[in-house]
Nucleic acid binder design. Sequence first.
DNA 1: CTGAAAGCGCTTACAG
DNA 2: CTGAAAGCGCTTACAG
Lengths: 339, 339
Amino acid sequence: MTRVTIRDVARYANVSVTTASRALNDTGRMARETRERIIQAAAKLGYRPNSMARGLVSQRSFTIGLLTNDTYGRFTLPVAAGLSAAMVDRGVSVFLCAGEGDPQRTLLNLEAMQEKCVDGLVVSGKRIDRGLPVELPRTGIPTIYINAACPEGEVGFVPDDSGGAEAATLHLAGLGRRRIAHVTGPRNFAATGIRADGWLKALDRMGLAPWGEALFGEWSEAHGYRMADHLFGQTSRGMPDAVFCGNDQIARGMIDRLTEIGVRVPKDVAVVGYDNWEIFAKATRPPLTTVDMGLLELGRQAGLTMLGMIDGKPTPAGIRRTPCTVVVRESCGARSEAD
Amino acid sequence: MTRVTIRDVARYANVSVTTASRALNDTGRMARETRERIIQAAAKLGYRPNSMARGLVSQRSFTIGLLTNDTYGRFTLPVAAGLSAAMVDRGVSVFLCAGEGDPQRTLLNLEAMQEKCVDGLVVSGKRIDRGLPVELPRTGIPTIYINAACPEGEVGFVPDDSGGAEAATLHLAGLGRRRIAHVTGPRNFAATGIRADGWLKALDRMGLAPWGEALFGEWSEAHGYRMADHLFGQTSRGMPDAVFCGNDQIARGMIDRLTEIGVRVPKDVAVVGYDNWEIFAKATRPPLTTVDMGLLELGRQAGLTMLGMIDGKPTPAGIRRTPCTVVVRESCGARSEAD
DNA sequence: CTGAAAGCGCTTACAG
DNA sequence: CTGAAAGCGCTTACAG
């Protein structure tokens, strides 16, 4: 029942612990035959190196901490999956620390991570203009900020929301839409501003005028629902023929209301969402064309970068923007004739 | 820049490492004054015990592994948050291992957890009748199964779906509804059967006959949408005055379609969902009364139990069912007059 | 090519 | 009440 150690392996293979260690780590030079004999002995005995012992001497724990304040994890979970996948292949595991936006709890987690001697720290949030509820003490631990405010001189990863918004708008324009409105979340989120800029930029590129101003509000269905009335209620001033929404919930509310008041989607109005929250986007009637932020890949990239930082590779500070893509479903009519 | 160790603390407080260790761990007996002096020295120097070193000698890593195959984490995330909260207070951190339902990856994670010498393992899934895609090797590590198939002789946690379904149905009956239908997910999920039984049990208790059979299908809005037509399409055979839905998505589809065909919710028909997926339930028009599975608390309970198992406390095998509660919103009319 | 020894940072008998 | 020593399971100079 007691765990097999490197001593057991060494004894079994008739070598010293030193040699066993070298064979198992593929370092040093030794007779091929010896190395293989040792490796086979390890396999035979079901040897697993004790990473606490290994960490103690090598001063690396082969762990990183993921600090998140995104309780429901819609953003963090795909990121975590990508991160974890990149890491596990290299033998590093990730601690999940749910801060719940509470300074007390965050601090507790932070201390735990220090005691565990994590090799790196990933701070993951749900908005790019807010950091942790506490100041991160200067620990000297490599740190990456994902979807969170990234302090000067640190490295961050963020989806390229400007590019995503542009792509969405260009998709609409490419389908012949000319009067493209934008309904989005609260004005005080950095992301809304960036997406609105992407919308304007794409319109400008196409020589199109924006249909009114960006309609800021909440990230909710209710906001989309209300803005449908706002945009399509008074026919006097004409109507947009497309709406680019700041997230999928808004798009859902928009489409639901449009359907209720007899505006046909996509025939009369094309709608694009943002987030590609699949369970949501696919259930919208019609299924929602939306922007995917590529969070899984973002997490993977961040993981690779973290691995480099841990290995001491020089890593320039600054924010990396990873690509967003338009996922075409049916709410824009791109497939109305094709399929 | 180099980390402060217990030796630094000992030197600073003018005691041996042994005494420092005892003071910091609050073991042994020594002059109060000495103990306090040491603790203050530690605080002053910002000492954090190295848990790898501590783990090496105490044969405990103060970590557990959370193996999940619930990619999107709707179920796992609240569970993980509760688990983590219960654990962090006791100094144990949790590794997040996303198996993605892939045997290869799951195995890799499992090996990583063994190398990390986790004190416990939590297997978390999204359905109670499916386990990990690989057989868990007999490691002797305390293990808890949450929302996943729990092998004979192991300990598991699961929401009390039968009780939840009963409570939902009784809520409906208590509001005077007499013709209560049930629309739910696929027949081959264990949870659908259990919830359907709860529905029948509650009806029986109230002396009510079920309105037709349980309508199995998918866990989707589309299914709810279609079943609305099925239940309310032909007026010839009468209509239910309430529908208990197997999850919130089904309820959402149901309500959306009901509204479209002119059936008023809750006036004509009361609807209850299941899951209390808030972002969803709150956006439904009207906001959805639904069953909350208490996943956060379930996770906390599991964490406490795990802590006990790690400490060697005898823990009877078997499945624990944690309570589900009805969250009242507006889709049943419980508040139609009140508010 | 191989091994004995020191040491990573702790805890815990054991001795005083 | 306090400390010197051994040891947890590894890796890595150092010596041969």
